[in-house]
Each structure stands twice: as C-alpha cells, then as structure tokens.
Amino acid sequence: MHDETKVQITVSVNGETYTRLIEPRLLLSDFLRHELKLTGTNVGCEHGVCGACTVLLDGESVRSCIIFAVQVDGQSIETVEGLAKNDTLHPLQELFHQEHALQCGFCTPGFLMTLVPFLRDNPTADEAAIRQALSGNLCRCTGYANIVAAVKKAVESGVGR
C-alpha cells in the first residue's frame, strides 16, 4: 500500500527555527496550525480560492493550503503572528483597526499577509492597483470599502517605504 514514512523538515517561521517529523501530505496551513500551534493563519476553502491562508514564503505571498509543508524544508515562512513587534501592532494592522477594516476578522490575516509584500513592492499604489492586489482575498463580511481605505491610508503614510 502507500508508504506513509514521515519526513523531517526544518523551517524558519517568523524568525524561529522549527524541526518536525511530518507526513508528506500535510498541508503547510495545517503544519502551521496543528504542529506549531500558530492559529493566526486561517483556513477557509482549502483549495486556493479565498486567500484566508495567505502567508509569506521567502518574502512572497502564497496560499498555505495548496503547498505541502514538506516542500518548504529549509525555507522561511512569515505568518500574521510575526507582524506585531512585542505589543506594538504593525502599522498596517494599526490602520486596519483605525479604519474598521475588519468585522469578524476571519479574512484579516490573509489580507495582511497579501498586503505587506504588495506595499513593499508598490509603495505608491493607486486605488485600482490596490483593488487588483486584493482580488485574491475574499471577505465574507464584505468590508472591502474599509479595507481599501486602510490601504490608501497606508500608502499616504508611507508604510511600504
């Protein structure tokens, strides 16, 4: 039958190094949530459509529900837990708070992890570019207008620079 041999991986997550023995079929999203107990990364659809599970892999946004944990062996991951430093929110988190850019908050980690590299690469993005950047993230509470407002404020205050 199937070979269920576990594989050892070493991954850096938010700057900390973790070594774990895992099944190859374990999704990166489940690895973060169940193995590392980093439950900030949410899982909505588990097939790449909603964006709730977005994390950074070597600095670029990816869907953690459609990557196997075994594939990121030796690479570095950043999750929403890595944004705030001590008790200080990341400026983008602070702006989400100020602009009421979250209601239930389920989609928020995915939006934030999509926006951090977007603002890094497009520090002067206009509204059209912002909307396009957000096209891969769904918000069931449909708070898009406030999310866009928060990102516009982030551009104005130079968050990406």
Binding site: G51, T54, E60, S61, R63, I66, A133, G136, N137
Partner: peptide, 12 residues
C-alpha cells in the same frame, strides 16, 4: 500574465 489567477497563485 496578469490575467492568470491572483498574485499569491502567480508567485507559486
């Protein structure tokens, strides 16, 4: 290229 899926999917 920009018509293919979303940025997170194009990154991978």
């Amino acid at each position: 290229m920009p018509n293919i899926a979303h940025v997170q999917i194009r990154n991978r």
